[in-house]
Nucleic acid binder design. Structure first.
Length: 345
DNA sequence: AACCCGGGGCA
DNA sequence: TGCCCAGGGTT
């Protein structure tokens, strides 16, 4: 049932090969599958697709990516979020390049940076046609509904994983994986599932109960704390001071604007400024991270010293060359464009 | 097992 | 504007 639906309804995505070609034995480029799967972790197809096309054009093979400069890759990733993925992407590309290619088993794949149980299963099934399950959020939702699973997630994960793994077909694991993911993305959606169009409707216990959208059941979530801090836009003749953040921690390895630490209690005005200067308040920026929401007070000053001076550390970037900033800093820099034009991310 | 990591879509 | 979504790494 799922297989026939997949053949007729499979999404045509840039990193895929079509069901007809796959049935003839064609396999996608493991590099393309890997790149897409890393980008699709916590990210929608719609949002990841332009990034995928940009990456695959700029770095067409895993060895091209392995030889890329870290800063170029981080900048190209800017806006996708979860920047540890970009750091692991590079690490992984370099390991795979040294190995001479991707491992073709779940065990070998899972040993690589940035590849966990889901991505390992997806790559093994999609690129190497191994009989492995690729259990992502879509698949979990589909099965939580099929079985009307009342155990709240994430506790139900291991139980579902055993069931899904036992159902993977020997000959067509890729079609099974992509079929379930497409079903979850197109029909068995989180909010308003289109049950009448579902090929599995006769098997679905949640549908029989009349309340499919109440699954999967989730554990209650903890409230997000508030944090605040200051960001400093130090300008000098059409240039802005930016700094490379530490490799680990929040927004690690990304370019950012100087600032105070972000704390739960408001700090004094201009605390953490890169230099003493005549700072002008330019407004607030609000941004919500996974585990806290942030209010950033943005200050600006025109520097009177020389750009090459050792008094400040960081890099001076001309307004028109500013790119590769995480969204929170992009929002802050945008406050500057009220007086001077900054267009590109 | 619990916690650390963004950002976009949608009501 | 607030809520929802959701893999991997680290400890």
């Amino acid at each position: 049932m799922l297989y026939a639906w997949y053949l007729a309804n499979a999404r045509d995505l840039p990193w895929r090969i079509g069901p007809a070609d796959r049935a003839r034995g064609a396999r996608p480029d493991p590099y393309a599958v890997w790149l897409s799967e890393i980008m699709l972790q916590q990210t929608t197809v719609m949002h990841a697709a332009p990034y995928y096309l940009k990456f695959i054009q700029r770095w067409p093979s895993v060895s091209d990516l392995a030889e890329a400069d870290d800063a170029d890759v981080m900048a190209a990733w800017a806006g996708l979020g979860y920047y540890a993925r970009a750091r692991n992407l590079l690490k992984c590309a370099r390991q795979v390049s040294d190995l001479g290619g991707f491992p073709d088993t779940v065990k070998g794949l899972k040993a690589l940076p940035g590849i966990g149980p889901y991505t390992a299963g997806a790559l093994a099934a999609l690129a190497f046609n191994r009989s492995e399950a690729a259990i992502d959020g879509n698949v979990e939702r589909v099965f939580a509904r099929l079985l009307a699973e009342t155990t709240p997630f994430p506790k139900a994960k291991s139980k579902l994983s055993i069931i899904v793994s036992s159902l993977v077909p020997e000959k067509t694991p890729a079609e099974f994986a992509e079929g379930l993911m497409d079903l979850g993305a197109m029909i068995c959606t989180p909010k308003q599932p289109n049950c009448p169009a579902c090929p599995l409707i006769s098997l679905c216990q949640a549908y029989r109960q009349g309340d499919p959208q109440t699954y999967p059941v989730k554990a209650p979530k903890t409230p997000k704390p508030e944090r605040s801090g200051h960001a400093f836009l130090l300008t000098h003749q059409g240039h802005l001071l930016l700094e490379r953040r530490a490799q680990t921690g929040l927004l690690g390895g990304m370019l950012g604007v100087p600032g105070s630490t972000w704390t739960e209690q408001a700090s004094a005005d201009c605390e953490g400024a890169p230099i003493g200067a005549d700072w002008t308040y330019r407004g607030d920026v609000r941004h919500v991270f996974t585990h806290f929401s942030l209010v950033l007070k943005v200050w600006q000053a025109e520097w009177s010293g020389q750009r090459g001076s050792a008094n400040v550390h960081g890099e001076w970037v001309a307004y028109e060359d500013i790119s590769g900033l995480p969204t929170v800093f992009f929002k802050a820099v945008k406050l500057l464009s009220q007086t001077s034009p900054i267009s590109e991310r």
